[in-house]
Design a protein around this nucleic acid. Structure first.
Lengths: 256, 256
DNA sequence: TCAAAAGTGTTCAATGTACACCCATGC
DNA sequence: GCATGGGTGTACATTGAACACTTTTGA
């Protein structure tokens, strides 16, 4: 944005007040869960990708918009998990107030609007890591993936949000085959197992895992193998879309 | 409130804009789940008890306040379950606009504030039916229990809220001993079983239920029986508070 | 031929489920 | 003494958990 655009930007007209959305966007790559974080120009810390809710925009639509802005991908798996409303969230909090240098150039009225207390609706999204090319939006200086074990300092309560999102993800994994959103269309059984092990944080028995997964009847073996050299080539599988969607809707039992 | 008080009432100063709280307050009595509903003066339909969030009030505190206002009881089991933000929620929606007669006497500015679009954070509460003496607040004409099967016409998306809350309750029942909040301090095993049957909507085997419940180690038999005449007197039980709290925190397996 | 990961079945333990009779109480 | 609901145990089926060797591949 140019300076005159920044000066004219009036969120109070466009968006609901006191209310924001933050997305915990989870990606997966080489046995690592990753979280997409952004840094705003002038702010000494990172944030989750977030945004405001248009005055005529559904909550879920707003979350999808925020997600699409940062990932370039539409229609990712996205789910509301909790709404955060503690008083510590405000930018007015001493810890945060000094971060507000970022808002130079913005009208005083807008700074007031931005620094009011916000309640934020948390969504989490799951995506295959390679699909996404993180895109910063204009007022951000950087937007990139971090390993969950190596998250940067997150401002406000965003570290808490990540924690709650991952906890929810672990719980839901037992009832919905949601982990599947984190792998490419064609995948091998060992890849899927590594994904589950990463999310729930413990090693699983290979034979039991295979047995249980196949018994769900939501994936089928392809007549292809993945050539990864150095050892036996694992078979590729893909979802049976029809059954997969049914499983998503009706729930499955996948506790380990 | 008197007329001059109503005219001076200025929620825009007191509360966060565009944001409300609604509570699905679930009670239990004689094998019936009940929901507390209120009717506002002049409105042709019922609503869930709700309220706004003070500018310096935590979200959970606001929900507790709303709950305490209507039930007279503090510290009930209360849990956020979902945030509702579809556009259909607005009072500006044609279906709802005609309901606004209720706001006669209120300043035009306040009517504008009240009729903006609201996103609402849904909480559900569980309480023993007899503990609560439903209290209407000033601008309400009535506040009372309804059987879940016989709910009145609920305005906005409040029927959807009840539905989502009950669905969440059923799911959580398998992991947390939450049903216990719906019974008096001393209860019999058949009472507890009837409660579970009511919530999950199917009959359970008496012996299996007893076995599983006792194996959790969170209740103990008292040296008392409940005299209910006409047949054998069932023993009374109560929670072992320490273990019960632990179970609430760590989760239990109570799937039937 | 060796290293590294894939693939594949069976046994045992624990848990869940189905099922029926006697007991206490008040009318 | 009879109607009503409370209380109790066992057998079977299902599910989950533990466990090891052979196969494929490329260096």
């Amino acid at each position: 944005m140019k300076k005159d655009q920044i000066a004219a930007w009036n969120p109070a007209e466009l968006y609901l007040s006191n209310l924001s959305i933050d997305c915990v966007i989870v990606g997966y790559h080489e046995k690592q869960l990753k979280i997409l974080c952004t840094r705003f120009e002038g702010l000494n810390g990172w944030l989750l990708p977030g945004g405001f809710i248009g005055k005529n925009e559904n909550l879920d639509d707003a979350a999808n918009r925020v997600l699409a802005e940062r990932t370039g991908v539409e229609g990712l798996f996205l789910k509301q998990f909790h709404t955060f409303g503690s008083l510590q969230r405000s930018w007015e909090h001493p810890v945060n107030k000094k971060q507000l240098a970022a808002y130079e150039g913005v009208s005083a009225q807008t700074v007031k609007w931005m620094t009011e207390r916000f309640v934020s609706v948390g969504y989490y999204a799951l995506t295959e890591y390679s699909k996404v090319n993180p895109k910063k939006i204009e007022i951000e200086s950087e937007c990139r993936w971090f390993d969950v074990q190596e998250l940067p300092d997150l401002l406000l309560d965003h570290a808490q949000m990540v924690h709650t999102a991952l906890e929810t993800l672990q719980l839901q994994l037992h009832h919905e085959p949601i982990g599947f959103n984190l792998l490419p269309e064609k995948f091998t059984l060992p890849e899927m197992q590594a994904l589950y092990e990463t999310i729930i944080g413990k090693e699983l028995d290979q034979r039991n895992f295979t047995k249980k997964l196949l018994s769900l009847g939501i994936i089928k073996k392809l007549n292809e193998k993945k050539h990864i050299g150095g050892h036996r080539s694992p078979s590729l599988y893909k979802f049976i879309k029809r059954n997969y969607n049914k499983a998503l809707k009706e729930g499955v039992q996948l506790a380990f």
